[in-house]
Design a protein around this nucleic acid. Sequence first.
DNA 1: TGTGCAAGTAAGTGACTACTTGCATTCAGG
DNA 2: CCTGAATGCAAGTAGTCACTTACTTGCACA
Lengths: 210, 210
Amino acid sequence: MDRRQEILAAAAGVFSQYGFLGATTRRIAEAAGVNEVTLFRYFGSKDTLLLEAMQHVTQASGIIELPAEPVDPVLELSAWSEAFISHLRLRSSMIRKTMSEIEEHPEIGICASHVPKRASADLCAYLDALKRKGLASEDFDSKTAAAMLMGAIFGDAMGRGMMGDIYPEPADKAASMYATFLLRAVGAAKGSRTRSDISKQGRESKQLST
Amino acid sequence: MDRRQEILAAAAGVFSQYGFLGATTRRIAEAAGVNEVTLFRYFGSKDTLLLEAMQHVTQASGIIELPAEPVDPVLELSAWSEAFISHLRLRSSMIRKTMSEIEEHPEIGICASHVPKRASADLCAYLDALKRKGLASEDFDSKTAAAMLMGAIFGDAMGRGMMGDIYPEPADKAASMYATFLLRAVGAAKGSRTRSDISKQGRESKQLST
DNA sequence: TGTGCAAGTAAGTGACTACTTGCATTCAGG
DNA sequence: CCTGAATGCAAGTAGTCACTTACTTGCACA
């Protein structure tokens, strides 16, 4: 049904603006251009409506794939990071509301956690592929590295609006700066040497390629 | 006054469990062991009570100082990171609630943002001191590096409860693993080789000591 | 012994909450 | 043309919300 989708979208929008308690059935109905009673006819209760709405929006994830066989790490990881950060930025206010709801409505939190879980798994696999192909040193922990990059991206997406001065500028290059920084840390910053910030290291670090 | 403090503490506790709308005056009064009317006699309204409560709790920050003159980067930054992550972990649920409230109650968000702002400034200054003393390479951006470490710590503190499997183990060493990873990225991972997680690296990487 | 303040108690206000019921309207298909 | 499903509308229910008023109690101090 068309109506269902409209209501779900409206519910997600209102939730991301007002949170669970603030997302009243009246507001949702108004946003959907629908009578309040219709909500209950479709979904029975506010709880199931909001749960379904959240499941609906977490379907479409903005994560792009990382190649199974890395070729140009800086290019590939920058693109991935930029896609990921814009996914998070678009949804930042919903993510904040969802995070604050995990104690009282864990089901919502669980379905939202699939996105970062998948992102992290993808990223770990990619870093391991870098090791395997000899494109990175082998003496670092993928989970630690992945947590660093994901944390930087996540923190930037959540916090820049409130404390823009603590994050690197310009905002639209930040994700690729994090990615480049990470690759340099794992000794994979050769190839694609277009960025000036890694030029110096190039001279000295053939060190660990096994 | 003694009573004031008790009420403020109770309000902060209830807020961190239920969020702004869920923190009803009844619940706060109950938690404080005080009559509901007393809240209004002291603070006039729920809004000012909660604002005052948040200002009160953000006074005491668990951030320790970083030395102005770095001596042992790994040791110093690990200690700082561990103190910071346990500060965040203790307050994770309040932080989540506060973050979801920044749109509707910006004043609360603003006073909470002082902690990460100060942490970031301290960290940047420390990284710059590393550069100045020749303990790190000079071709990285301090803000980027700081955002990476703070992001990793923040993400870990917020997310481990819900998706423990994507973060490095053990949890109580994670902060120092992030710190060590960062220092290695900036070429400052020599000295203080007591931690096992960098033992392997020790053999091969004298590389960047300028 | 009397005064004044801090706090509790009880009751109530009007607005809002999720949710229900009953009935009128619209419109498509047989 | 009739039927039935989808929807709107008006009203109502029982509960909670922040907040107020009016009054009582207990204790310190003079």
